[in-house]
Design a protein around this nucleic acid. Sequence first.
DNA 1: AGCCAGGCTTGGT
DNA 2: ACCAAGCATGGC
Length: 295
Amino acid sequence: MAATEILLRVRDYDLAATLDSGQVFRWQEQNGSWNGVIGRRRVRLRQVENGILAETGRPVKDWNWLCDFLQTEIELESILKTFPDDEPMRSAVAACHGLRVLRQDPWECLASFILSSTKQIVQIRQIVALLCERFGEPLEWFGAGPVARTGSAANRTLQFAFPSPEKIARATEAELRSCKMGFRAPHLLAAARQIAEGKFDLELPRRLPLAEAREELVKLRGVGGKIADCVLLFACGFDSAFPVDVWVERALRQLYFPRRRVGDKRLRHFAATHFGPHAGYAQQYLFHYIRTKLK
DNA sequence: AGCCAGGCTTGGT
DNA sequence: ACCAAGCATGGC
């Protein structure tokens, strides 16, 4: 039966932590609900006692797209069990219980993280919002109400889909720069063109072994190892990908090597070997922990 | 190897 | 109020 609402029964799921942990950049909290866009659908999510209550503007028959995005079928406990049994991980897990890794659209993920380099999360959100308002296709309003002309900036941006590679490919560098992305504009433009022209297949990495998938992604301009790892983890389903940004590096040094000089090489080796088959999840816990709980 | 590239937020004064 | 440092980095 088609409905505009569904209850996804799931436990160990902290919706707020998950949507606000720097994986995705378009979700907005509004009095207890989270508003966002998945594909061409505007979605409202609310954490309830026995799971997540989801609402869309139009009736939906098949909710798989939502379960896939939220990864509600993943049993979190079995992943947490694979984490190393050490003090830093125990603290991070205790502090961020219910934090999940989402499964995003590869293009939105790639584009967002190309725009992320040396930007703070608030600012990445701002750039992505401008990009969607300027280039994204308009979406139907949430619910049946009339179009409000006086929506907040936060709500206005949720009236647009994330722009396709084809749309971005037709833009000029100057137009992209007007979204305040600075030197990242040519990177985004080049990636969009390669994908739009069929010279780069974003569906491919998913089907390759991790190392080869990473090699492919790194071929794109503006994509180094860190951004490739973000796409591999957040969009391609590689749980073992371990993005190391300044926060995770800080977490590793502070929590695992306090008051010790550790070379960059050794730290990378530690990161690559210590955290097990779901290292990406462990990374997300460390990232969120150091940013929100330890400062 | 080291420097450079937007612009906004954060934090110290 | 003002200013400097820093930011889910990668390219040259």
